[in-house]
Every structure is written in C-alpha cells, then in structure tokens.
Design a protein around this nucleic acid. Structure first.
Lengths: 146, 146
DNA sequence: TTATAAAAGGATATCAATGTCCTTTTATAA
DNA sequence: TTATAAAAGGACATTGATATCCTTTTATAA
C-alpha cells in the first residue's frame, strides 16, 4: 500500500495536470480542496515535489503550480520514489534482510509476482495517463467527475 | 507491504510450527531470537495471537507456545486479519474513499489485479505450507537454514 | 512604489506503530 | 509446600508519518 503522502502527491499532480490543460495554474488551496487533503500538509508535499523537480511553481500574486516541458510523462514510480522511497519494490514480503533467489523466504516466489506486477504498473502509468482517463470520463479524481 | 508486526507474527508462527514438529514448545526468548525480533515486542504479538485463538500457550515452568488441533491450516490471511486488519485488501490504491467498478479511480483496474493477486496468496498459503518449505530445505526462516 | 497574494521554509503538535520495563498470574520441579 | 520458570498484562518510551501554524521570500497588480 502506498503511504497517504504518496496518494496525496499523485492526486495533486493529476489535478495540476488537468488544470494546466485548461491553461490554469492551481494554488495550494484549490489543490488541497480538490484532492480532499489538509491544506498545510498538501503545501509540504508540493514543496517536496518542486524541490525534486517533479513539478514547477511560481511564487507571488497569480502564481501556482504547473508542469514545464521537462516534466511531462512523469511515471507514478518517479513520484513514489521521491515521496516515500522505493523500499516496497525491494523488500522481502516475509521481512527477511537476506532474501533472494538463492536464499528465498517461503513467500519469495509468490510475492515476487505481485511486487513486480505493481512495479510494472507504476512504471507504466504516468500522471498524464491517469489524467487522460479522468478527462475522458473513464475515471474520477474524487467522488464526482470533474 | 505487511506491517513489521505482521511479519514478526508470521515468522513466529512458522517457527513454532517447526519446533512443534520436533515435539517442542518454544518460549518467547527462543522465538524472538530465531526470528530476529525484540523479545518484549514479540511477547506482545504472541499475546495477541493467543488471545485471538490462533495459537495456544501454557504458562509456568516448562510452558511455551504450540498449536492445538483447531489451529492447523491457519492461513496468512487469518494472521494478517488479527494483527493489522484487512484494510489493504479493500483500500483504493489511489486513496479515494469511494472507488469501485461504477466509480473507479484511474488506477482501479490495474491495482485490483495486484491487490487480488496478493489476497489470493495469503488465502492459499498457510503457516503449515510455509513451514513445510523450510522443513524440506526449499526456503529459509532467517539467514541460515534451520 | 506599495499593498497584496502566493509559494517556501521553519518550528512544533498529534497520532499510531514500534519497542521496553516491570508486575502479576500460573504451572511445575524440587 | 515452596522456589522457580514461564506467559499475561499494564504502563510507559521512542520513532516516524501525518498535520498545523507562523514567518519569510517573491512576484505582480494597483
């Protein structure tokens, strides 16, 4: 399971993408409200994202968050990596420090399939691909369609 | 990812099973050492397991932990359910409160596959099945074979 | 040029998971 | 019957994730 912070981050980025497509740069307040996350906490997460160059921002009046040209096609993995680290893609499901094909825990073979399946998803899906699903009405960002 | 507590619980139960097959009832000290977990914390987890009838114990001199006849074929799901709850099998991967086939988040279809795959594993694998792999030398409980 | 609106940043608070310590209860061996 | 060994239980400590608040910096509109 992803951490709450990571969930907020991904939802925030998707919302920024949708607003950017409407030629808008949303601010913290608008983003937090839309993704149903606490405002100050959302601000912190957006800070992490901009510091790590996953997102761009402009300060001051009329400012807000947006993607620049280097930041299209951000994968979910990129976001997870920056927000909570990628331990979940390496860790043994049984909790062993030393667990690999040569020295497998009793869950190793089965767990690997699931873990790698998830890795594949987050390496394939991008902020843009998720946003498109919402734009096309095939998915929702919160309880209602946008 | 399972919580640390759940990992300790599963490893502890597997070790108890292995020792039971040798006609022994391990105590907290022996269990904690074998699974490389803090002793007092392991004691708490074993308490949870016995209170929830997943494991039996005998107090006093010569006492220890063991499975009784009602407790064979415990699935990993049973353990997870008792130790950390089963939120991870229901929760939306994107963090939405309302997410289902009619009202899907943009990760819904893909995430469902992974989540259900994991559910299938923990409903199929049992403390006994894991223990057998170790007994047969096909897997390890810690860094070395038992 | 100044007032204002917005992100950035620092300090602190809260909460749940993890971990420790000490006392109580209970069974058995001596 | 008593000393001892073991689990059970209660209280507390630590840590990391989550969350809040206030100040500083910066860009723009008036």
């Amino acid at each position: 399971m992803l951490s709450k912070s990571t969930e907020y981050a991904i939802r925030a980025l998707v919302f920024v993408q949708l607003r950017n497509w409407e030629q808008k740069r949303p601010g913290v307040g608008e983003i937090a409200k839309e993704i149903e996350a606490p405002e100050a906490y959302t601000a912190k997460i957006l800070q992490t994202l901009t510091k790590n160059k996953l997102l761009d921002s402009i300060k001051g009046r009329g400012g807000g968050f947006f993607f620049n040209d280097n930041q299209s096609n951000l994968t979910l993995y990129d976001v997870i990596h920056v927000v909570e680290g990628d331990a979940c893609f390496h860790k043994c499901g049984f909790g062993l420090k030393q667990c690999n094909n040569d020295n497998p825990c009793p869950l190793h073979e089965n767990y690997k399939v699931v873990r790698d399946g998830f890795f594949d998803i987050v390496k394939t899906e991008t902020v843009k691909s998720l946003s498109e699903k919402i734009l096309h009405g095939d998915a929702v960002l919160n309880r209602l369609k946008l």
